[in-house]
Amino acid sequence: MVENRPLLNFLSHLLLILGVAVVVFPVYVAFIASTHGPNDFLSGVVPLWPGPHLLENYSQMLTTGLSSSGAPPLLPMMWNSLIMAVGVAVGKISISILSAFAIVYFRFPFRTLAFWMIFITLMLPVEVRIVPTFQVVASLGMLNNYGGLIVPLIASATATFLFRQFFLTVPDELMEAARVDGAGPLKFFWDILLPLSRTNIAALFIILFVLGWNQYLWPLLITTDPHLYTVVMGIKRMAAVADAEPRWNIVMAAVMLAALPPVLVIVAMQRLFVKGLTETEK
């Protein structure tokens, strides 16, 4: 800020408060809805203050779910989401850091070709190759299992580029010193490179965890067995019946529960997350 302008400051605050209000409003309403009984909506409008049914609604969602929707209780679905999110994050980080290590620290025929093949995945999001990818997964017998949910998603050009970029900034002499000190490639990777990449790995993990948790189309295609539903896609099934039955209160409890874990991760690790986001994508 260059000069002091009280009016401008006031307007800025006003704008920000308004912005925050718009951002928070839907979630606030959803939270309020999730604390009421099923009949509180029949008057035609959602109440604006919390009701007394918070624990009841949440525990019902977590343990028994909305039976008429064909979706299981939230707890197993959240477990599936957790496995998928961690699986996708760990998988992407592992195979990307290995590829980046190979591309930066070795010279071999087809090195550039390998780099471009990884690059191409950027241009092929799941959404544009839905049917054939489904067919491949089906023919490999990977429908309705965790492998099918996770493995096809773990190729990652962005993660590979991030690690490559980082490795290029690691001084050459570090690797040379390690070689003189008797470390082979894998020992150098494990003893030196991996510990140096800690911050990058952590930042990337946060972003990829959120990405994995929020997958929607992929679990929709791969899982027909309710035991494997993830929570984000499962909620859609509940919302679909919620219009027929006045059960919005517990559907909103489910929405809150589905959104909470990734939001908590981001708020708790804000600094790392911001670093990871702005550095991965630029």
Binding site: L16, P26, N214, A258, A259
Partner: peptide, 18 residues
């Protein structure tokens, strides 16, 4: 302002749908 980044698009849809 930043936290909705972590909300899945599908959930964002359902929130406003409601």
């Amino acid at each position: 302002i930043v936290w909705p980044y972590a909300v899945a698009p599908a959930i964002a849809g359902i929130l406003w749908w409601f």
